[in-house]
Simulated scan of single mutants.
Amino acid sequence: MDFIKSKLSSIGSLLFLMGLVSAILSIFNYNLKLLIWIDLWGTFMGWVIRILLIIGGAAIYLYTAKDELEN
């Protein structure tokens, strides 16, 4: 079970960082290759997806890292 939580923690931090880097690069009209599809639905939906990546990644990371910190 600890193996799964450690992997989920890594995935959560990856999602958070990808969303954050994508938001920063979007200001300069750049984007990550993995996230080019975000802006296909328009600018507003692109920002909604970026924000959801940041919030979702942080939530997954904090939820799984909380148990690691308690031990």
Results as ranks from 00 to 15, higher is better:
residue 18 M to R: 10
residue 9 S to G: 13
residue 23 A to G: 06
residue 2 D to A: 00
residue 4 I to M: 09
residue 40 L to G: 04
residue 27 I to E: 02
residue 63 Y to H: 15
residue 2 D to E: 02
residue 60 I to T: 09
residue 64 T to K: 02
residue 26 S to M: 07
residue 53 L to P: 06
residue 13 S to A: 14
residue 70 E to R: 07
residue 25 L to D: 05
residue 32 L to N: 10
residue 7 K to C: 12
residue 18 M to S: 14
residue 59 A to R: 09
residue 36 I to D: 07
residue 7 K to N: 11
residue 20 L to E: 07
residue 21 V to D: 01
residue 18 M to Q: 01
residue 61 Y to I: 00
residue 20 L to K: 03
residue 32 L to Q: 03
residue 56 G to H: 10
residue 3 F to Q: 04
residue 8 L to D: 00
residue 34 L to G: 15
residue 29 N to W: 10
residue 52 L to Y: 10
residue 33 K to R: 15
residue 18 M to I: 06
residue 53 L to M: 13
residue 51 I to C: 13
residue 62 L to P: 15
residue 15 L to W: 04
residue 1 M to S: 13
residue 26 S to G: 01
residue 29 N to D: 11
residue 45 M to A: 10
residue 36 I to K: 13
residue 61 Y to E: 07
residue 27 I to K: 05
residue 67 D to A: 14
residue 69 L to P: 08
residue 35 L to K: 02
residue 58 A to Q: 02
residue 52 L to Q: 14
residue 25 L to A: 09
residue 67 D to T: 03
residue 44 F to R: 14
residue 29 N to A: 12
residue 61 Y to P: 15
residue 39 D to S: 14
residue 67 D to I: 05
residue 42 G to L: 06
residue 54 I to Q: 09
residue 24 I to D: 00
residue 65 A to S: 11
residue 48 V to R: 02
residue 50 R to P: 01
residue 26 S to R: 12
residue 38 I to G: 00
residue 31 N to T: 06
residue 12 G to R: 02
residue 16 F to I: 01
residue 56 G to P: 03
residue 18 M to V: 06
residue 36 I to W: 08
residue 10 S to F: 04
residue 29 N to F: 06
residue 65 A to V: 06
residue 58 A to R: 08
residue 21 V to P: 12
residue 67 D to E: 10
residue 26 S to E: 02
residue 66 K to G: 10
residue 49 I to T: 13
residue 40 L to D: 10
residue 23 A to K: 08
residue 2 D to M: 03
residue 8 L to R: 01
residue 4 I to K: 08
residue 46 G to V: 07
residue 23 A to N: 13
residue 40 L to I: 03
residue 64 T to R: 02
residue 46 G to T: 00
residue 39 D to C: 07
residue 41 W to N: 05
residue 41 W to Y: 07
residue 35 L to N: 12
residue 49 I to K: 12
residue 29 N to Y: 02
residue 24 I to S: 01
residue 63 Y to T: 15
residue 23 A to W: 11
residue 50 R to M: 00
residue 61 Y to W: 12
residue 20 L to F: 11
residue 11 I to T: 05
residue 7 K to Q: 12
residue 64 T to F: 06
residue 62 L to A: 15
residue 46 G to R: 00
residue 15 L to R: 01
residue 4 I to D: 01
residue 14 L to N: 11
residue 42 G to F: 11
residue 8 L to G: 00
residue 26 S to T: 00
residue 28 F to I: 04
residue 36 I to C: 07
residue 25 L to T: 03
residue 54 I to N: 05
residue 57 G to K: 14
residue 54 I to R: 04
residue 69 L to I: 09
residue 52 L to P: 15
residue 53 L to K: 14
residue 55 I to R: 03
residue 52 L to C: 15
residue 49 I to S: 13
residue 16 F to T: 01
